[in-house]
């Protein structure tokens, strides 16, 4: 699961490719915590190249949300594939995270 980090217009973007399941969450958690420790307050997860996520992957998004909420920060997600979107809907997380179809739309969240 490659994770790439970039900064665009003051937003820290984490692009996650491949699978985000039990074996991969620790790597992403470390990347997220690293950004939070650096003081980033706006995190955008770009899932355009993500083909799998489970509840342990979702937990990392919740972790980021819970940490950033205290500092008036924000978490947004873009590029979720159609067939994965249902898991955000049934978990209710589509109401909690701002979700955008493409990274361009999400740059000013």
């Amino acid at each position: 699961m490659p994770v790439n980090h970039s900064t665009e217009n003051g937003v820290a973007v984490l692009s996650v490719a491949g699978s985000l399941g039990a074996d991969e969450t620790q790597h992403l958690e470390e990347a997220v915590l690293g950004l939070l420790d650096k003081g980033e307050t706006r995190l955008l997860f770009d899932f355009s190249d993500l083909d799998y996520i489970n509840s342990s992957g979702l937990r990392i998004l919740v972790l980021a949300y819970q940490r950033l909420k205290k500092n008036s920060g924000k978490v947004a997600i873009c590029g979720v594939k159609d067939y994965i979107r249902e898991v955000f809907e049934v978990s209710g997380y589509d109401k909690i995270f701002s979700m955008y179809a493409a990274r361009g739309e999400a740059s000013k969240f």
């Binding site: 509840s55 342990s56 819970q66 205290k70």
Partner: peptide, 23 residues
């Protein structure tokens, strides 16, 4: 699910089962 995300204490363990039951 009715508790705001930042205040939940046990959402993590239960979410996987909740997702299964919904799908």
């Amino acid at each position: 699910l009715e508790v705001p995300l930042e205040d939940r204490t046990r959402q993590i363990g239960g979410m996987g089962v909740h997702i299964v039951k919904k799908l």
